[in-house]
């Protein structure tokens, strides 16, 4: 049964076990509170509890995955070797979306909300549009991006007083 399902147990199992181990190693670094009202149940107790729970649960699915894999191979299934490049290519829109989003928030502080939003919305719209439709998307995408950047900045910065970063546009006294 569960054809190749085992992968969805093994990989998360490994990653989460490592994460749980890392987390547990950080716990002793927490400064314990020794002041008034301190009890033996300190600020490390619950992190140990959650960290330990995560470690056990991820080992559980890891072991389950290994058993499933054995069963699968015993039933004559082949361990398939999906090439990494293929996987990346299959998910290129997702990867591109994450990259553009990361750049968007990373540079928002220095470049400013308006410019980064303009660029980000434009790029993200294109990423979410099939290649063959790009030509007729450029203009509407640009208009959407410009409108979103301008209107949202005005409404939230000036009407609702949210501290959206002005960035390089500060030279215009915005």
């Amino acid at each position: 049964m569960s054809n190749k399902q085992y992968k969805l147990d093994i990989i998360p199992g490994i990653v989460l076990s490592l994460f749980a181990a890392f987390y547990l190693l950080q716990v002793p670094k927490i400064v314990e509170f020794k002041g008034l009202g301190s009890t033996p149940l300190t600020n490390r107790f619950v992190p140990y509890l959650w960290g330990g729970a995560l470690l056990l649960l991820s080992l559980w699915i890891l072991v389950r995955g290994i058993i499933r894999r054995k069963k699968y191979l015993a039933e004559g299934g082949r361990a398939d070797k999906n090439s990494f490049a293929e996987a990346v290519s299959d998910k290129r829109e997702v990867i591109a979306s994450f990259i553009s989003l990361t750049i968007y928030v990373a540079l928002m502080g220095s470049v400013g909300f308006v410019i980064m939003t303009l660029i980000y919305v434009f790029v993200q719209i294109l990423i979410l549009t099939p290649r063959e439709n790009w030509k007729k998307t450029y203009l509407p995408a640009l208009i959407t991006a410009a409108a979103a950047a301008g209107i949202l900045f005005y409404v939230f910065r000036y009407l609702l007083n949210v501290l959206l970063p002005v960035g390089v546009l500060s030279v215009f006294g915005l």
């Binding site: 990259i99 553009s100 750049i103 220095s110 470049v111 410019i115 660029i119 790029v123 390089v168 030279v171």
Partner: peptide
Amino acid sequence: FALLLAVVMVLSLTACGGSGKT
């Protein structure tokens, strides 16, 4: 990918220019 690269480069250029100025 070429387009993506171009966009990234443009972004980083504006960023450098931008942060330098600010």
